[in-house]
Design a protein around this nucleic acid. Sequence first.
DNA 1: ATATCTTTTTTACGTGCGGAAATGTTAGAC
DNA 2: GTCTAACATTTCCGCACGTAAAAAAGATAT
Lengths: 356, 356
Amino acid sequence: MDDTDDTDDTPGRKPRMATMEALSVAIGVSRPTLSRYFQDPSRLKPSTCERIRQGLERVEYVPNFFATRMNRKSTGMIGVIIPYLNDLFFTRLLESIEIAAMRRGYTVIVQCSHSDPAIEARAAETFLSMNVDGALVAPLGNNSDYEVHERLNARMPFVLVDSRPRSMSDVDFVGTDHRQSTSLITDYLCRVGQPPAFLAMPRVNFNAMAREQAYIGRMKELGHEPTVIGTEPIRDDWLFEAHGQGVLEGQFSRGAFTDRSILCVNDRVAIGALRAAARHGLRPGQGAEGGLRIAGHDGYPLCPFVTPALTTIAQDVTGIGRAAIDVLVKKIRGENTETSPHIQLFAGALKVRESA
Amino acid sequence: MDDTDDTDDTPGRKPRMATMEALSVAIGVSRPTLSRYFQDPSRLKPSTCERIRQGLERVEYVPNFFATRMNRKSTGMIGVIIPYLNDLFFTRLLESIEIAAMRRGYTVIVQCSHSDPAIEARAAETFLSMNVDGALVAPLGNNSDYEVHERLNARMPFVLVDSRPRSMSDVDFVGTDHRQSTSLITDYLCRVGQPPAFLAMPRVNFNAMAREQAYIGRMKELGHEPTVIGTEPIRDDWLFEAHGQGVLEGQFSRGAFTDRSILCVNDRVAIGALRAAARHGLRPGQGAEGGLRIAGHDGYPLCPFVTPALTTIAQDVTGIGRAAIDVLVKKIRGENTETSPHIQLFAGALKVRESA
DNA sequence: ATATCTTTTTTACGTGCGGAAATGTTAGAC
DNA sequence: GTCTAACATTTCCGCACGTAAAAAAGATAT
C-alpha cells in the first residue's frame, strides 16, 4: 500500500502496478502513450500496441477510476434513480436499462429512493457531484420534491421514465401509454362480461392516477357508468397486495362486487384482489358462473403463476428501458435533433389468461 | 460550463460555484479551511463555521466526488454485487444492506451480475478501480469465477452474503443456517402429515444444494426415506416458478406426488408448485383431504397473497443485511478482533399458513 | 544522403481536492 | 506590555491521470 515504487509483488500472483507511471516503466513505453492506449488503441502503431498488450498480460493493473474520470469531459456514467426495489416491475425496468447502457459502453450508477423523498434528493446530489453524463429518473410519486428533478434536468441530460409528474410535462419522457393500455383492457372486459369497476390506489402515484382517469374516460366513451373503489388507504404502511386484498375483502364481506368485473390499477393490487376472492370462496374467471372477473395491469412476472392466472396488460418494460437509454445517450452526445420535449409512449399488450 | 471564473450565475437561481476555490473567494475564507469545514466542522472556530454556513446558504455548491475521493485514504464507498435483480429475496436483501450502509455513512455502489459471470467479473474490476473501502458479494452460483472473488478478498475488506461457494470456506460469511431452517420445516411437515418429498432445482446454486443436503440429512435422522425431484432442468432459460410448475405437472399427470407433502427448495419454486396443483384440480393444504401439502423456503413477500397462502421458512433478510454491513464496516475500520473467518448464520422462522 | 512524414517521447500544465507543515492569530500568564 | 502556548488559517505539495505542445526518433520516399 505504501510502496514507493508503486508496485506490489505478492508472491504467486502477477506483480500489481498501482499507477500508470509504474506500468509505463515496466512495459517500456511512456505514460502518455499508455494513456492513449487505454482510450483508443487504434491511435497507436500496431507494433506498439502489441508490445503494450503483452506487457499487460504479465502484470496486474487497473486504472484509477477517479483520476481518469476527473479530467475527461465525459465520465461515461449514467445515473439512474428508481423509487423502490421491492417491485419486480422496477427491477425488470432497471435490468433492461442496465443492459442497454452497458451495450452503449456506459457504467450505470443506481440509486434507490426507498420511498423516501429525502433519499431521492440525496441521490440527485450524488449524481451532481459525480458528474454523471446524464440521469434517468423514475420519480417517487406525489411525494417527490420536484425541485430535485428540475435541478438535475437543468444541469445535465435528463430523461424521466415510467412516471411523469404533471408539473414536468416539458421534460423528455419514456413510458407506457396508459390511455391506450387501460382502454384496451377496459374494452376487453366490457366485451366479455359486465363493464368493470376500477380498484384504485391512494393518489400517491401518477401512473395510478393516469390509469384511473383513463378508465373513467373510456367507460364514459362506451356509455357505461365508471365505478372507482380503493382510493382510501387501508392503513399507512400499505403494500400494494395488502391494499387490494383489504379493499376487496371489505366489499365482499358486504356482498358487494362479488359478481362484477374488477379492473385493478396494477398486478400487485390484483394479486391481493385474487386473494380476497379466494378467501371469500369466490372463483373469478373467464367463464365464471358468478360473473366475477379480475384483471390487472403491468405484466408482473408472476401473473402466469397465480391461480387463477392473471389477465393483464403487459407493459413493454424492455422497450421502455432501451428507448430511455437511447434518448438519454442521444442527449448526452448532443444529437438532439428531434422535437422537444421528446415524449415516447409504448403501447401495452393484452394478456388474456384465466382470471378475466 | 466553460466559465473561467468557476461560477455560473443562472438568473433566478443561486449562483453555482464549480470549485472549492471559487467558493472560498466568494465566502472569504481560504480553500483548505473550507476543506476542513466539509470534513469536520468542529475543527474550526465556531465563528468561522457560522460564516461559512451563511455563505453556503447564498450559493450552490456540491464538492466534486472524484477529487474528494482520490486523495482520501477512505472513499466512503461499499461495493455490493448481487446475482440478479428479478427476485424479491435479493431486492429485500439489497434494501436492508443499503439502509444499513447509509446509516453508517457509506455510499453503496450496486452492481448486478445479471446471471452472467463475465458481468460479475467486470463489477469486481469496477470496485477495484473505484477503490471502494470494501465489498459485499452475493455470488452467482456454480457459474461464478471464484478467482474474481479471491482477488477482491485479497485486496480489500470482503464479506460473502447469502451464498457461499465451497471453495471459499475461509472467507467471512453472513447468511442463513440452512441446516437449521430446512430441518425446522422438515420436522414440521413430518409432524403434520406424511414425510415430505423435496422439490429441488438444478445444481446451479449453493443454497439450493445446501437445503437439499439438509433435507436428506434430516430425513435420515428422522428415519424417513428422502425423495428428491426436480434436479433436472426443464428447459434452458428456466425461471424458478416455471421450473416448479413444470416438474410437478409432469409428476401429477403421472399421478405421482398427488397426496404427499412437498418441500420446495424456495418460495418461487413453491409458487410454481401451487400453480401445478391448481391446474390439476388439487387443493394442497393443512387439512387437505388428499394429503397434498406444499411448503417453500425464504419468506418471499408474496407468500401470504397466493392461494393457498404459502407455508414457508422466513429468512431474516434484514438481520442478514445489517450483520453483513456490520462485519464489513468492522473489517474496514480494522476492528477485526474476532475469530477468523467470521461465519454468521441466521436462523429461519417457520411461517405456518394454509398450504401445509 | 537528404527531405518529409509518422509515431513516440518529453515536458509541462491542468483537474479539484486532501494533508502536512508553516504561518498567523489569539488568549492567558507573567 | 511582553512572552508563550494553543489554536486557527494559509501555503504548498501531492494524488493519478488527461491533454497539449514541442522535441526526438523512426520510417519512407526522393
